[in-house]
Every structure is written in C-alpha cells, then in structure tokens.
Design a protein around this nucleic acid. Structure first.
Lengths: 201, 201
DNA sequence: GCCGTATGTTACCGGCGGTAACCCATGGGT
DNA sequence: ACCCATGGGTTACCGCCGGTAACATACGGC
C-alpha cells in the first residue's frame, strides 16, 4: 500500500526529513517526551532503520526536534527585541515567552527533558540559547557602555535572564498560582527595578 | 502481634538505607547520572532486588539521592540567609551556591538530570526548591512590605532567582569563561541594581 | 543488459529496569 | 528439641527500547 509515496521529487531527501520530523512532532505532542522510536516510525508510516538513516540516533532526531521547538518557543520573544524602549522591550519579551509556553506546554516540557538527557539535543539547545542570549546582550550592551558599566557582564546577564524565565515558566506551568500577565509584570519588575532600587526609598 | 518490630524494623532499615544510598552516591560520583541499578547494587555488595525493596524503583532511589544532593548544594547558601544587610545577603548566597556547584560539579549535573527525567525525583526537587524559595521569599518579604511593594511578588521572585542561578551555574560549568567570584558579582549586580537603575543616570 | 545507489523491510542483539520465585538463617512459642 | 514465621538475600527471568546487520527492491547511467 504505497499511498503517500507516489510523489517522487528531485530533493526527496530534505522533504522526507521534514516529513519524518513532522511525524515525530505529532507523536511527541500527544505522547510526551517518552515517545519511542518505534512509535514515531509507525506514525511516519515507516520502520525504525529509516529514522536512523536520517537522524543517526534518537539523540539526533531529538536534537532536530529541539531546534525546531526552540525556534517556535522564542520566535515571538525575539521579535520584540527591536523595541527601542528598554523597559518595554523586557516586558514584551518576557510576556511573549510566557505566552508561547502557555500555548505549547508539551513542547516546552519536551525541550527541558531532551536538552538534559540527550547530548546532541543539549548541544543544539546550548548553541541556540547562546545565540538568543547574544541577541539579548547586544540589545543592552550599547546601554551598558553608554552608562559606563562593564559590558562584559552582558553575556552572563543574558544567560541569567534566559535561565530565570525558563525556570519560572516551568514552575508556573506546574502550579498556575498566578495569571500570566501578572507573572510577566512581576518578572519584569524584578529585572528592571532589582532589589536595591526598592531599598533606596 | 509483634508490635515492637514495627518500631525497630524501620531503624535497622534506616541504617541499611543510608548504607545503600552511600553506595549509590559513590557510583554516581564516578560514573555520572547514567549509573545502572546493577552497578549500584554491585557497589553496595548486594543484588538488585534489595535496592528495589528499599526504594521501590530507580525513581525512588534517585529521589532520595536528589534530596541529599540538594541539601548538600544549598546548605552553605541557606546559611547566609540570616545576614541582615540585603545586598550582602544576596551576594553571599549567590557566591556560596556557585562555590558549592564548583566543589561538586558531578552532583549538580546529576540533580539537573534526575529532576527532569524522573517523576519522583522531580517532585522531591520541586518540594525542596519550594522550601528554599520560601525561605528566600521570607527574608525579603518584610522589606517589600516596609517599602509598600506588593509582597505577593516575593514567591515568583524567589523562584526566578533560584532558576537563574541554576541555569547560570550550568552554563558556567560548561564554559568557564569567567572566574567564579566575578560571575557572582555580576549576578549580584543584576539582581540588586536591575536594568532600570542603570538607565536612570 | 548490468551495476551502483537509494530506499525500505525483517529480524535480531544487548542492556536495563523491574519482578517472581526460591533460599536460608534466626529465634521465639509450644 | 522442633517447627515455622519472618526478614534478608539470590537466581533467573521478562519486556521494552535503542540500535544494527542483512536482506530485498526500484531506479538511472554506462
């Protein structure tokens, strides 16, 4: 029963890869991060060795999925980095990220799992976050230099912000003790005001 | 009958449990988070079913280990929470945590892994972090109330700080691009000054 | 025609988490 | 002195899953 196979195109390889990735995506979304290779293969209508030909091993597949998912989770947030007003920029990025996590909780959970237990996926995530953090850092580095603060801190800060938002998002998903926009405001306030600012009054 | 056993059996069991946990500790420290149950059993000088009698399943064992490790990683940091001066308190806690992570990198890595891939371990970690965050929150809640800022934000903030430090510590372990005390200073500055404070000058 | 290559399948391996069944020492109670 | 309940221990196994070897088949260029 070759129902899907009929379309033989010139660049079948890349197309097939995306097709397989889409199948993996579907399985992960409904079965969670514990999806087995057999399950994914079945969903794609093929058998395991094909997956292994395209992705090397499970880690490779998960790395590819992780990359796609990271882009999905951070796209809106990155789009806000053009905002010139720094405080609004932070607020918008924070809010957009939380919204994306709320929209795709299973995707967020998958990324957390995959990046800690699979080497390649973790590497891919590190690279992505590196880039993301770099863009955040770049957006604020100019300000730091203008003020006279050591711009070397920009990178650690960016990582700190990213990590903070990741963790808080996970915590928030588990126990939804506060509405999203409220949490976004609170995190923005922390990042913007800091603790010291409060103590000065 | 034999109601006395109900009291004494757990005592003997507790000693054995600690003994087994110590063996698991040794194995994890040298083999990493991928240690198998057979390996741990062998290190303890027994066979698998015994481990399962005491801990139920691998998740249970890892949850117990996680709890012990979390205490180890956060003990020094928690000890600093008594410091009255808020900025020094933050600085000391941050520095102490990074020092603990540097002292026991394998332990830190294990916790990250175990808490994301094992349900019970994750639950134990969540409970621990909840407590830790609560203590941090309590240490600052008074300040917030005194200043007139909504103290409801204390809990999300505490989680944000914890998550930020966890993530930054992991990033720092991977690429040691900056000495520990310098990183501690940078994170303290971020938490204390915030971004807005800088922009006011 | 023939052969290399790409694509797919079946059938298997090894390791690991988890468990059933059995085994044996110990020490009251009769 | 004996029995047998009980708790600590072992052997031998299961099932699942990641990963792979070997085999099968269609297509394009010489």
């Amino acid at each position: 029963m070759t129902a899907v196979d009929v379309k033989s195109a010139p660049e079948r390889g890349e197309a097939r890869r995306r097709q397989l990735l889409a199948a993996a995506d579907r399985v992960v979304r409904r079965r969670g991060p514990d999806a087995s290779m057999d399950e994914i293969a079945a969903e794609a209508g093929v058998t395991k060795p094909i997956l292994y030909r395209h992705f090397g091993d499970k880690d490779g597949l998960y790395a590819a999925l992780t990359e796609r998912y990271l882009r999905l989770l951070h796209r809106d947030s990155e789009a806000t980095l053009g905002e010139p007003n720094p405080r609004r920029r932070i607020a918008a990025a924070v809010s957009a990220f939380l919204a994306a996590v709320e929209r795709e909780p299973e995707v967020f959970r998958f990324v957390r799992r995959a990046t800690t237990e699979q080497r390649q996926a973790g590497e891919a995530a590190r690279a992505f976050v590196q880039g993301h953090a770099a863009r955040i850092a770049e957006a604020t580095r100019a300000d730091l230099e203008r003020i006279g603060v050591d711009p070397e801190a920009a990178e650690p800060w960016a990582h700190g912000i990213v990590g903070m938002m990741q963790f808080v998002a996970g915590w928030w998903l588990d126990e939804r003790s506060v509405p999203r926009e409220r949490l976004a405001d609170q995190m923005t306030t922390l990042l913007w005001e800091g603790f010291g600012h409060l103590h000065e009054h």
